[in-house]
Design a protein around this nucleic acid. Sequence first.
DNA 1: CTGAAAGCGCTAACAA
DNA 2: TTGTTAGCGCTTTCAG
Lengths: 340, 340
Amino acid sequence: MNISEFAQKAGVSKSAVSRYFNKGYLSEDKRELIERAIEETGYAPSISAQNVRTKVTKLIGVILPKLSSESCARITEGIGEILNKKGYELLLVNTSNDCHKEIEYLELFRNNRVDGVILLASMFTAMHERVLHKMRIPVVIIGQSHKGFCCVCHDDYGASYALTKLMLDKGSKDPAYIGVTDEDKAAGLARHNGFLKAVKDSGITISLERQVIAEFTLDSGYENAKRIFAQKPYPDSVFCATDTIAAGVMLYCRENRIKIPDEVMVSAVGDSMVGRMSMVTLTSVHLHYKTSGREAARMLLASIDSGEQIPRTMQLDYEIKERESTKRNVKLCETDNYNG
Amino acid sequence: MNISEFAQKAGVSKSAVSRYFNKGYLSEDKRELIERAIEETGYAPSISAQNVRTKVTKLIGVILPKLSSESCARITEGIGEILNKKGYELLLVNTSNDCHKEIEYLELFRNNRVDGVILLASMFTAMHERVLHKMRIPVVIIGQSHKGFCCVCHDDYGASYALTKLMLDKGSKDPAYIGVTDEDKAAGLARHNGFLKAVKDSGITISLERQVIAEFTLDSGYENAKRIFAQKPYPDSVFCATDTIAAGVMLYCRENRIKIPDEVMVSAVGDSMVGRMSMVTLTSVHLHYKTSGREAARMLLASIDSGEQIPRTMQLDYEIKERESTKRNVKLCETDNYNG
DNA sequence: CTGAAAGCGCTAACAA
DNA sequence: TTGTTAGCGCTTTCAG
């Protein structure tokens, strides 16, 4: 059923119907006539046809690296919460961590498929910059900060610094780092740098051996723990870039009777459920993912409404959740850390 | 830039351009002309305008109760995997477990907003039935089986039966159940019935006191564990409808020095990460969520392609993952991280 | 193989 | 306040 047919059935003109759905001038009589006809026929205007005329899709493209990660899911939930309230829906695409796909989707979205884009970026290449500058619709980037764009960022550096400092303050003299690739500017580079700065500030020198790069998985955390704990002496604290990696580390420690936190402290970034539930609850830092989703959505909405995009970066705070994995009661002598 | 402008720039007719993008008859010359012009201008046809003509949106609506739950995320990932490959994108909407919103979104989708719908249903009311019957586009339901519709289901009943039986076989004589509302036909009713049948088959009678209903959260699992373990004597096994609930139960046990599995066995449905990582690893049953997403997507695609929807139900298998929480006789390693 | 022309369902000037 | 009408950008006959 189209608008003409419907208008005829309702006994009004096409324009009246259009006005009904677009809050234009309309007399009570016609309004009632139309309402009655809707009841009968279930008519609703075609959104695509509306879009051809108005250039408004009421759709926001969301590009994310992975759905089944707690942080992404939380961000997306925050985005949806704000956007749905304003009558927008989410067009979700999953890049499976393939940054070429990010570009591909950005290009797809460029052509009035959506009214705006939120990009959960893990990297920021020259190609990103080029494509992003060609976008004709507002874009907000979550997780990476870059001059000239609208960004919502977590304080990866500050959080890592604070978390590392916590462990050092608790007596760690020989820290280790299990991170992710530095190509990931936020979860990789920034967290690594925060860790390094805290270590340096406390006057400790750290070898490259004590810093390893893992994948984003539990299994990779486990494997890298194996490498780290094969070193003699092994470290007295491990900072992990993600809770999932820390979960793998703690699993390894458990299987190998390495006591947490007495022999080694563990901490990580993310504050996900796994850290609250693991055998030794994990000291972690909360980065307000859901909030970042909400804020990004608000920022995007502002750009859409105003029709102009004023580049800016919003930096979200962090919050340390100290749990058992760093709660040392007894300080051990350094010599106790030999493995075997 | 629209098709007319672009055609002019390329030096061909509108129809040629349209044919280029729709794989119609076209000479090599024109094809090259068009390709060159695309390079220059970055032109791409407006999807909405295409849709007005063709009635094809290349969009699939996905209605889900919650994004940040591991099972939903996995299902959605499976859906996306198949659909993206075929050039479809996902229009995701989140009902926050509000089943009126499910209806609302179904109605929204009814009007050529999308080419098909996948509904992750937690309930199935008369209203659902009515709305679903009025849909003019294909719909596949995940998680609920209902005559007359296309459904992909997990074997909640069978899985719960098998899991309960496992604990009974291991010597449990006094089992308890912590489930979710029976209004949820799959996670609630079916799992409850599977549990009850296994108990009955082993000749045990179980009191109502031993069966409690929780929310879908860790905290609710904890609170209900408190109720269950306040009973004297307390049960020697607890079957939980979800891993998250079990996590709460195990947290309670840990805090109250109730030894798992020696004093009480615990098992649950879901096989999520939290179960692999918890202080005592959790025996759980894997329901192949990602696979169900994939299968639902395939089923939907088939309906869209064939233009007809042949009602049918696909029942997925389950797989038991036995871990420590039911492994009686296995000595646990002492992580002794009690906090105070 | 090609181009002209007639719509798809809707919105928004415009004149009434 | 209303109805008429001219497009929005595209696809798809149809006649060449």
